[in-house]
Computed example of a mutant assay.
Amino acid sequence: MVCNIIGGEKYSWASRTYEEVQEIAEQDGSILVLPVGSIEQHGHHLPVATDTMLVDHVADLAAERVVDSVPILVAPPIWSGHSPHHMPFGGTITLDHDGLLDVVEQVVDSALENGFDGLFLLNGHGGNSSLISSATSIIGTSHPDVEVLGLTYFTLAASFIDEIRDSDVGGMAHGGEFETSLMLHLRPDLVREERLEGTYMDEPYEWGGKDLFEPGPLSVYRSFDEYTESGAIGDPKLATAEKGAEIYERLGDELERMLTQLYERNQ
């Protein structure tokens, strides 16, 4: 399975009856979390559903942290993202920009009919980031009574990642030390440890992105085969499950604070 779409957790939308969904949504300060991922190549060592799996796990962690005090549901993830730059490697299922934006809007429009006070769009793929930012404004405009937030989850690690990483700048990019560590912690059965391979990020423009945590001010389009032969960018050989566990829990700390503030603002 890509993710745990049907689960017994008390924050799982998919495991609820329609009456239970509405009961939670109608409570003061209720929050809907919508994870958005992708299906795209992640080198020789990680599955194509890595982004969707990770954002789904992170959404579940965030909800688990607050569910005893906050009315919250996590929707099944949108599993296909905007990934045309990965197409040369195969294994990728992509939506175009307008298609993904339309999917997000339609899912949200129908979900908010249940009465949620807050919406949290939680993104797990860098190629979706600008779209999720736009969707936050578009949905906020069309649903003025709902507090709408949008975030790419891994950006929250910028404040603490230097305490954990061993790679130099360029080692935590696509399929590198960061994502591989999280997968070794959460889904080690899906990591091909005998095939760990990546190329450090080397963007020729000095203003371009160097790493997940040094994105740079300049937007540059390149097909990923211009950066790497394996499909992975970064240093997955430095990844460990222990690093993944620490990253995961500290992301949970940040998201717990964020969701608590969202709830308190909407009561």
Rank of each mutant, 00 (worst) to 15 (best):
M1A: 11
N4Y: 09
I5T: 14
I6Y: 14
G8D: 12
Y11W: 15
A14E: 12
S15D: 06
S15A: 13
S15F: 06
T17E: 08
Y18C: 08
E20I: 04
E20Q: 15
I24Y: 07
E26I: 06
G29K: 04
S30N: 11
S30C: 11
L32Y: 01
V36N: 05
G37R: 03
S38R: 04
S38H: 02
Q41I: 08
H42L: 03
H44T: 13
L46I: 01
P47E: 09
V48N: 12
T50R: 11
H57E: 08
V58N: 01
A59P: 01
D60R: 15
A62E: 06
A62S: 14
D68Y: 05
D68W: 03
D68G: 15
S69W: 05
I72E: 05
A75T: 07
S80N: 11
P84T: 12
M87I: 14
G90A: 09
G90N: 13
T92P: 02
H97T: 14
G99E: 10
V104L: 13
V108D: 08
D109N: 15
S110W: 07
S110Y: 10
F116E: 00
D117W: 03
L121Q: 00
N123D: 15
G126W: 03
N128W: 11
L131T: 13
S134K: 12
A135E: 01
T136N: 03
T136V: 14
G140N: 10
T141F: 13
P144L: 11
E147Y: 13
V148E: 04
V148P: 06
G150V: 06
G150K: 02
L151M: 13
F154P: 01
F154S: 02
A157M: 05
A158M: 06
A158E: 15
S159E: 15
F160P: 00
I161D: 00
I161G: 00
D162K: 12
E163S: 15
R165I: 05
V169P: 01
G170M: 04
M172V: 01
G175V: 04
F178S: 04
F178L: 10
E179M: 14
S181P: 05
L182P: 02
L182V: 06
L184F: 09
E193F: 05
R195D: 14
E206T: 13
E206Y: 09
G208F: 08
G208V: 08
G209F: 10
D211L: 06
L212C: 00
E214H: 07
S219H: 09
R222F: 04
F224P: 02
E226F: 02
Y227R: 06
E229C: 01
A232S: 15
I233K: 03
P236R: 10
P236M: 07
L238K: 14
A239V: 12
A239W: 09
I247R: 05
I247A: 05
E249V: 07
R250C: 08
D253F: 05
E254D: 12
L255N: 03
L255Y: 07
E256A: 11
M258E: 03
E264P: 00
R265Y: 05
R265G: 12
Q267R: 15
